[in-house]
Simulated assay, not measured.
Amino acid sequence: MTHLGSPHDAYDFIEQIGDGSFGTVHKAQHKISHKLVAVKVMKKKHTTIEECQGQFEPKLLDLLPAHINIVQLYDSYLSPNCELSFIMEYMDGGNLYQLMRERRHHNLPFNHCELRSIL
């Protein structure tokens, strides 16, 4: 379900944890429950809820069953300035790119079990 409004109304943004081609990701905390989440703010502007609901990523995440290796999509927002934001499960430890870069820096290749888990 996409809410009209800003995720800043419900979440305190703590820090930016990623910046990619399609959006920026922020670590945030729900103002009431204090649950940590990741807020992905899309760079492309949208004008209607229908346009937002046509996005591939939330459709795919809604179709996939809950699984330990798939981040959960909790909610989405369309702000007055037409920014689409996804409220997602927060993963401590960064993203796959950061993990790969860190492992390469320390010359620690992934073992077979780690690769299976990632894939």
Results as ranks from 00 to 15, higher is better:
F110Y: 09
S76D: 15
S79F: 14
L36M: 06
Y74W: 13
L99H: 07
R104D: 07
L61H: 06
K45M: 03
R103I: 11
P80E: 11
Y97W: 07
H26P: 01
P65I: 00
H67V: 12
C52R: 11
Q98I: 04
E57D: 10
C113H: 10
S117E: 04
I17Y: 01
R103L: 14
I70S: 05
A66D: 07
Q29L: 10
E15V: 08
M1F: 04
M91C: 15
I32S: 04
K45V: 12
M1H: 10
T24C: 04
N81G: 03
I68R: 13
G5N: 09
Y77D: 03
T24N: 08
Q98C: 05
K59A: 07
T2R: 12
Q72P: 00
G5Q: 08
G20P: 03
A66C: 08
K59R: 15
D12L: 06
K45A: 04
G18P: 10
H46M: 13
N69C: 14
C82A: 01
L36Y: 14
F86I: 00
H8S: 02
H105L: 15
I17E: 02
V39H: 06
M1Q: 07
G23E: 12
I14G: 01
A38D: 00
D62Y: 07
K44R: 14
L78H: 02
S76K: 15
S79Q: 09
F56W: 07
E114M: 13
R116T: 09
M1S: 12
F86M: 15
V39C: 06
K45E: 05
L78S: 01
F13L: 10
C82W: 01
G93N: 06
E83L: 03
H46Y: 15
K31Y: 02
L84T: 01
Y77M: 06
T24I: 10
Y74Q: 02
L60V: 15
E102Y: 10
P80D: 14
I17M: 05
H26L: 03
I32D: 02
H3S: 08
G94D: 12
F22I: 02
S85F: 05
G93F: 12
N95G: 14
I68T: 10
N95V: 10
H8F: 15
H34A: 10
L36I: 13
Q72N: 12
K31F: 01
L63P: 00
C113Q: 13
E102D: 12
G94E: 12
I32W: 07
F110V: 02
G23V: 09
L4A: 03
A28G: 11
A38K: 01
